[in-house]
């Protein structure tokens, strides 16, 4: 800390390195996912939809599939909105 720094504001946005780290963690995780063979998701979504449609009438937009990884553990999230 020198005298010049005393006069500088110490608002959070001054710590741009922290912002850089946060942005990088998000984009790098996203890009790693897309290159690690996760491109089967749309096809799987179609298959699951067909199985459900055999029993219940639902539309394509009623199904939502996500693949996330947290702390080295992958989570497959399938959300189906059933008609009333």
């Amino acid at each position: 800390m020198n005298l010049m720094q005393l006069f500088r504001s110490s608002r959070k946005e001054d710590n741009s390195a922290a912002i850089a780290k946060e942005r990088l963690q998000i984009i790098v995780a996203h890009e790693r996912n897309s290159r690690s063979g996760r491109d089967f998701l749309p096809a799987m979504e179609r298959d699951i939809l067909q199985v459900i449609q055999k029993y219940i009438e639902i539309q394509q937009e009623c199904i939502d599939i996500k693949l996330d990884s947290q702390d080295g553990c992958s989570i497959l999230e399938v959300n189906v909105q059933l008609p009333n």
Binding site: S16, A17, A20, L24
Partner: peptide, 14 residues
Amino acid sequence: TRGEMLNIQDVEEI
């Protein structure tokens, strides 16, 4: 030190 640049641990971690 001034928070203007990623530190080594950040780069290693990412």
